[in-house]
Amino acid sequence: MGLWRRIYLPAILKGLSITLRHVFRRKVTLEYPEVLPPVPRGSRGTHRLNKDELGRERCVACFLCATVCPSRCITIVAEEAPAEWPDRDKRPRVFDIDMLRCIFCGYCEEACPCDAIELTPKFYPVGTRREEFVWTKERLLSN
């Protein structure tokens, strides 16, 4: 190794010049908690259960989403629909989604024949207990 390389100074200056050049470049860092990043269209986040024009939930408890779900995170318990709902036989009494098990693949949305379940582009929240992540029907309807 010659003296030129042994004193290390040229290499350090070369490295610093790269750093200095990047100081004046366009900044790429997103200020995330303050500025929300643009979410691409079709981004899959938390689930939502849709309602129809009468304000009833669209779900008819056909179990297609629970069957197609690769992680088996959907728990449905069906019950008979009230008599004043002539267009359907069943409705879900329990519709729970375990957000920790869900992989947000969107298969439930594809399988649903009634457009009842849908994945919103909203971010999924973090939590400190596992029980927080089981979203009930009420929470899914209001999401």
């Binding site: 995330y32 990043p37 992989i103 973090v126």
Partner: peptide, 25 residues
């Protein structure tokens, strides 16, 4: 476990949320 971050995989924003949650703890 202190903080769970759901997602498969979580977006970086979610992980940042988790770290902020740890900081708040």
């Amino acid at each position: 476990v202190d903080v769970y971050v759901p997602g498969c995989p979580p977006r970086p924003e979610n992980l940042i949320d988790g770290i902020i949650r740890v900081q708040r703890r």
